[in-house]
Write a protein that binds this DNA or RNA. Structure first.
Length: 812
RNA sequence: GGGGCAGUGGCGGAAUGGCAGACGCAAAGGACUUAAAAUCCUUCGGUAUUAGUACCGUGUGGGUUCGACUCCCACCUGCCCUACCA
């Protein structure tokens, strides 16, 4: 009887004792670095982890059987907020909470039976790990890739921390963790110069990443080409704007500043002060709630100030409006109401002038007073001084030339991508290794003093401030340069910093001379396949690419990309077709499933029940099918047949054909990560084998071959039962060290084929014919078919199409 | 508003432009059993038909093609992402 609860722990123990999955440098073998996104140690492994990891494990195991030296490591992204929230709630040190969770999750991870090389486990909260996170920070700092700047940042008043832009969600701009609406706060923050690499990050050549991820990253970076133009104001200040349409400059009839723009105070006249201040206050309040909803009616207030349009010297009013965002471009725009919908809507509402500067030739002249929409985008330039008469496709360049000659602007590229804010006002993260000295300024902690360790004796005060700020001895130190009194930086690093390089730490988690052993790097990098959820497209996956490129330029890493191939799995939803969550009560616990069915069944079901990249809702009764399959494999292979063995040639030939055909398709399906058809292919082959067994094939050479190939095809997906059956059918330990079987192409060939006979594309007959039938014979046979004759009614066919080995289509 | 993904039986899903519904679940009937579990066999898209079989059928409407679930265009629905990006 198949008893997974007996065999699974047994083999897991044996594999661990033998170090079966230890991956060491072996120059004789081609390497394969298979990486799955490292989990956050929340305390409990959920079905989503299984869905991400076990098919990835199957793929890695498949590569191993194919003869690759496969590295498939695991670790924990162990810094972060939940630990700190637990600390505050239960008065327990985040380290204790985190490491207790890790211990539990290790046990759960081991129950998967995955081929993780546990010697290489890396935990980002270990001092021996974050010592190097700090080292990277210093390298970036020393090479002008890290800098400090006062900046308005999104701040969650509940979590009391700064959030990266992508951690702010939804229309109401709430914190991704606790849902509290975020506020803007001016703080001195540490930044990385990700925008230095914006253009390079748009280049995906040489990597095989899903189009969807490429699109998400491209949109996130949002490169736009245009011009920056300086507008002089009556108050004497210059206002810089970015525009993608410098050709419409002559149609700029007013300017709009974001309410937070630093020059608002300067340009506002005495009489407008009150109205402007009121609007700013309202924007600040709204901004946190619903200001950015695009379909809101536009609002704004005149500042009383005027600017000069630099190309035609027209005096144009300066307004403030919340549809202009401080976070994009320069926080100021030139408004061209005739040709921009947003500006048009605003101009009509506040009776601002609309000047048409684009007119398609051969169309009625556009009269601004009669316009209902901002149109058109392209045509011939009118009312545009020296540009008047210019064709639309030349206007951009000519306008840029013009503003350059006037010295009021130049061509410019703008990105939505911002520099990465990496500082967090929290305790449970890698401390930023900087010392602030009154004499020497910001001084990096010397290498020999790393890591800057987090203190153990900490306490959380209700103010929500980081305990590092309040710690009596940790914060105050001496300057490494002048020896004078100095203070440590109390901010810690964004955890995305830790996860930007963990694939390097896996190479040698205990190496103490460098973040990684160069020998290991040379052998294993780059990552050959990276698997994980798509939700990291604009965060982790962008950061890790930036990190790698920055390190490349510092001579630390090589090559342009860290991960050659990326594949994303879908999501397992609850049985109610909703996202799994504790509050909905639709959570499926993998531990329970393993207890009821065994890991192999859970693995098989997760691979079988949906296309991996799409995911699907969980179904409790469908898993019975996978359980039944494994039971059936068990007794089909082990229980002797009650039919006498007879090596009938037709039977063994059919069996071998099916075996090698299946091997062919399953090899392809593993390669392309079509796990569902891997399992269905195995089920189908088992059905064939059952038939063959009933016909007396059990015990024949062909049967032995089928068995041996079957188990090896099954081994990546269901490693325990495959190992057990491999042993019980008399093979040597371990199946996971066997070579992937070779397809016998001769055996896959059919002797007879079913020829499809169509008339006008409709199926009319099926003819079983020899595989080597000639075109003439096939056509003749088709025309001779009774069904065909009945339809043709004696008429001559217009045309007969023959697809060798497949069909004949008669066009009547 | 923009972008992406998806739409095939009661359900999850198969199908290099060439037999639609593989494989599995559920359901129904039967075998085995004192009974249950497990296992095995049969049926299982719709309509018509005693039957062979015929017709219809992959969200909707067009197109390309000898032939379309598959390619192209438009639309509808659902989900996800994004959102005044100057």
């Amino acid at each position: 009887m198949y008893q997974p609860d007996k065999i699974e722990p047994k083999w897991q123990k044996k594999w661990a004792e033998d170090g079966l999955y230890h991956a060491d440098i072996d120059e004789k073998k081609p390497k394969f670095y298979a990486l799955t996104m490292l989990p956050y140690p929340s305390g409990d492994l959920h079905i989503g982890h299984w869905y991400a990891m076990t098919p990835s494990d199957a793929r890695a195991r498949f590569k191993r059987l194919q003869g690759y030296n496969v590295l498939f490591p695991i670790g924990f992204d162990a810094f972060g907020l939940p630990a700190e929230n637990a600390a505050i709630a239960h008065n327990i040190h985040p380290r204790k909470w985190t490491y207790k969770n890790i211990e539990n999750m290790r046990k759960q991870l081991k129950s998967m039976g995955a081929m993780f090389d546990w010697r290489r486990e890396a935990v980002s909260a270990d001092p021996e790990y974050y010592r190097w996170t700090q080292w990277f920070f210093i390298k970036f700092f020393e090479n002008n890739l890290a800098y400090q700047k006062e900046s308005p940042v999104d701040f969650c008043p509940h979590c009391n921390t700064t959030l990266a832009r992508e951690q702010v969600h939804g229309e109401d701009r709430h914190c991704e963790r606790c849902g509290t609406p975020v506020i803007k706060k001016n703080l001195t923050q540490w930044f990385f110069r990700t925008t230095n690499y914006a253009d390079e990050l748009l280049d995906f050549s040489g990597i095989d990443w899903p189009d969807q991820v490429q699109t998400l990253q491209t949109n996130w970076i949002n490169r736009s080409e245009g011009a920056s133009v300086i507008f002089k104001t009556e108050s004497g200040d210059d206002i810089e704007v970015f525009t993608t349409r410098p050709d419409t400059l002559w149609g700029a009839t007013f300017m709009v500043l974001a309410p937070e723009h630093p020059l608002v105070g300067k340009v506002t006249t005495q009489s407008q002060k009150e109205a402007v201040a009121a609007y700013q206050a309202e924007a600040k309040r709204m901004g946190d709630i619903q200001r950015e909803a695009a379909d809101r009616e536009k609002t704004g207030v005149f500042t009383g100030g005027y600017a000069i349009n630099p190309v035609n010297n027209e005096k144009i009013p300066i307004w403030i409006a919340d549809y202009v965002l401080m976070s994009y471009g320069t926080g100021a725009i030139m408004a061209v109401p005739a040709h921009d919908e947003r500006d048009f809507e605003f101009a009509r509402k506040y009776n601002l002038p609309v000047v048409v500067v684009i007119q398609p030739p051969e169309e009625p002249t556009i009269v601004s007073a009669e316009m209902n929409d901002a149109v058109p985008a392209h045509g011939e330039m009118v009312n545009s001084g020296p540009l008047t008469g210019t064709r639309g496709d030349q206007a951009f360049e000519k306008a840029v030339e013009c503003i350059q000659q006037l010295g009021v602007g130049k061509k410019a590229v703008n990105y939505r991508l911002h520099d990465w804010v990496i500082s967090r006002q929290r305790f449970w993260g890698a401390p930023i290794p900087i010392i602030h000295c009154a004499n020497c300024g910001t001084v990096p902690v010397p290498d020999e003093s790393l890591p800057v360790e987090l203190p153990e004796d900490v306490e959380w005060l209700p103010t929500g401030e980081s305990p590092l700020k309040l710690h009596p001895t940790w914060r105050f130190t001496t300057c490494p340069q002048c020896g004078g009194e100095a203070e440590r930086e109390t901010d810690t690093m964004d955890t995305f910093m830790c996860s930007s390089w963990y694939h390097l730490r896996y190479l040698c988690p205990h190496y103490d001379k460098y973040p990684f052993d160069p020998k290991e790097y040379d052998y294993w990098m780059p990552v050959d396949i990276y698997t994980g959820g798509i939700e990291h497209a604009t965060m982790h996956l962008l950061y890790t690419r930036f990190f790698h490129k920055a390190c490349r330029d510092l001579g630390i890493t090589r090559g342009n990309e860290p991960m050659l191939q990326l594949r994303n799995q879908g999501m397992v939803l609850g049985e109610d077709n909703e996202k799994m969550s504790k509050s909905r009560g639709n959570v499926i616990a993998p531990d329970d499933l393993v207890g009821a069915y065994g890991a192999d069944t859970v693995r098989a079901y997760l691979m079988f029940f949906a296309r991996w990249e799409l995911g699907a809702p969980w179904n409790s009764s469908n898993i019975e099918g996978s359980a039944r399959w494994l039971r059936k494999v068990w007794y089909t292979f082990l229980e002797p047949s009650d039919v006498e063995t007879k090596a009938d040639e037709a039977i063994t030939r059919d069996l071998r054909r099916k075996v090698h055909q299946t091997l062919q398709s399953i090899t392809h399906d593993y390669e392309t990560l079509n796990f569902n058809t891997v399992i269905s292919g195995l089920m189908e082959l088992l059905n064939e084998m059952t038939t063959a067994k009933a016909q007396g094939a059990f015990g024949t050479d062909a049967w032995q071959e089928a068995e041996s190939i079957y188990l090896r095809m099954m081994a990546p997906s269901c490693p325990h039962i495959a190992e057990e059956l491999w042993q019980r059918t008399g093979h040597d330990y371990s199946i996971h060290n066997q070579p992937w079987p070779k397809v016998d192409v001769e055996a896959t060939k059919e002797e007879e084929i079913t020829l499809i006979i169509q008339v006008n594309g409709k199926l009319r007959d099926r003819l079983v014919v020899p595989v080597n039938i000639t075109e003439e014979q096939a056509k003749a046979a088709a025309l001779a078919s009774e069904n065909v004759q009945n339809i043709l009614e004696g008429k001559q066919p217009k045309k007969v199409i023959y697809v060798p080995g497949r069909l004949v289509n008669i066009v009547a």
